[in-house]
Design a protein around this nucleic acid. Structure first.
Lengths: 189, 189, 189, 189
DNA sequence: GCATAAGCGAGACGGTACGTCAAGTCTTTCC
DNA sequence: GGAAAGACTTGACGTACCGTCTCGCTTATGC
């Protein structure tokens, strides 16, 4: 046996969570349903996760654990198009949407999500953008945080509020617009 | 009596909804609680609103009914800074946050919200921006939809995901960046 | 409809209680089982009875409501033999045994049972015995309470501890012995 | 070390049972609580006792192991008053009451209790009474079993149903009454 | 006198039932 | 006679123990 029963149970539970989520959506997700689906007692779930929300967070992190990477040998635009497409796809799944719905509702999970996911990706994005801008001679007086918000904000907005999955065309134009705002114009602003 | 009992009841219920929301948040909002607070039977609520979500939608629309207006005699930037500040403030209240949480979760309410709120404001914004750009001689080859997304996307993102209320400084910089991307380069703004 | 739904529900629940009790015994009696058997939600049971024990008490009282009567035109012995046989039979049923088991365990129910059942029957017995003794010229210096305890104590004892149902022969001898103790012996004790 | 761990464990468990019983009563007695109190794993308890009831039976027998003895040089009355007082005291403790509650509910334990306790004491009582009656010239046509039931039945009844601990006065009168019924009256009954 | 297996504490496990809560429906009462 | 009040069925909640079952860690024999 290469794995303890405990570890196997945790896995079964997270998988059951994802299944149930896909079948019934977050609003109809029940701990009892997950327990039944996983062939596990309710108490076993409560032993490891205090609420449904923590469970979905862990399920999301398990599925999304391999983060997308930036590639310094490629262009800024190309990198961000890839990144944002990936972002759009991840949060357009039922699991991703549920994750966001929880974040919107639940401060505690939101904090945890920030620590385990958001802040990491934001740091990567920021440092990539910083270096790339220096490499390309773009003056760093622009506010990186706001640039990043201009890139990811619309993606989240389209998904959360308009219930659309941004496509490559949309993303490409979005990145163009943002880059247009930082390019060294003839005389600067 | 200048008002039917029915109308007074509806008002009492919407007010109770807002009170309960402010006290307990959307997750703990119960029809029973609202009925008790409003001094009304549950059935009376169900007679007019099929779900809690519809109730919150109506409460939100009642409170926010007087939409913010654009002012053609002022600058693009100034107009959007005001608009976005208003947006940020509206959706930073408990009621606004709850409204968004419901939209994220519930397709049906999301559609209704789009029809009664979002699409109206987006149309106003788009037509104001279109005219203002023409007035200022900015070529209209830019995608207005994406521009608007770049403006409001970050606001929603900051509120929903980062749980912050964007301040005037942030909004101002954001608008600057977006405008920078559409100005005819070479000659500056 | 000659009866409210509420009253019908209460009846259904008490009947289901008795059924379940007969099938599974008090130890295996569950509120969930009763609710299922009665075709009623658990909450409906909890609305009217705080605990399983109160439920059984009411079921017992419903079934046993028509108390046994003394007949002054008959002999003391004959009256008590009938009374005690009735007692033995009532508390030898599953329902009666369960009732006793609860009384033994639960002070609160015990008090309620005393008020609604025991004290009434004891009062009847005592006053009948008192009058009959006067009628038959037996001096009343004997302690009526102890006499009654000597009559019913052994019945309860046989049922509760020996798990027997006292038969008519046993009861007849018992009554004889007790009466022998109060008859005016020549020289007294 | 003059005792194996096994034996020490059994003792600790029985003591913990009594402690828990005194603190929380039989209804709230849990194996887990006993295990915790005894500083022992649950399995260790299950190894030696199949149910909570068996455990309480053993605890009761341990505490009550030194049975009360009759004294042939004393009077019938005096012997029985002592015996019955002892009986009343033993079964008025929490442990004794719990023991009785279990006996009332559980046929299996009831049988075991009969074998290890009741039948022994009944045999002693019966043979003492038999001999004493012969000694005192009382004709043995009276039914000894019923006499004993008349003595102990009221004690159990008072404890179990009336929740009282019979005092010496009650017991003395009771014994008097029973004896009165067997004394050679002038003409018999 | 050391190995070796039995017994042990700890506590996770699948379950069952608990008592509570709120949902949304249905019935009765009262105006 | 129609709306308000509130009792209903339902189903999930989160908890507590049940009795079973692995785990390593004693401990106390038997080679």
């Amino acid at each position: 046996m290469n794995q303890t029963k405990q570890a196997r149970n945790k896995e079964k539970i997270l998988e059951a969570t994802i299944n149930e989520l896909n079948q019934k959506g977050y609003l109809c997700l029940t701990i009892e349903g997950i327990a039944a689906e996983a062939g596990v007692g309710k108490a076993t779930i409560y032993r490891w996760w205090p609420t449904k929300a923590h469970l979905v967070l862990d399920a999301f992190l398990m599925v999304t654990e391999c983060a997308f990477q930036f590639d310094s040998s490629d262009s800024i635009k190309s990198n961000f198009v890839d990144q944002l497409k990936n972002l759009a796809d991840v949060f357009s799944t039922t699991l991703g949407r549920s994750m966001l719905a929880i974040i919107v509702e639940d401060q505690e999970i939101s904090d945890a999500f920030y620590k385990s996911y958001l802040s990491l990706r934001r740091k990567d994005s920021a440092s990539f953008l910083q270096q790339a801008m220096e490499r390309e001679g773009i003056k760093a007086e622009v506010n990186i945080d706001i640039l990043l918000d201009m890139l990811i904000g619309p993606i989240y907005f389209r998904i959360l509020i308009y219930k659309q999955t941004p496509d490559e065309h949309f993303i490409s134009e979005l990145v163009d617009h943002v880059i247009a705002g930082i390019l060294p114009a003839c005389s600067g602003k």
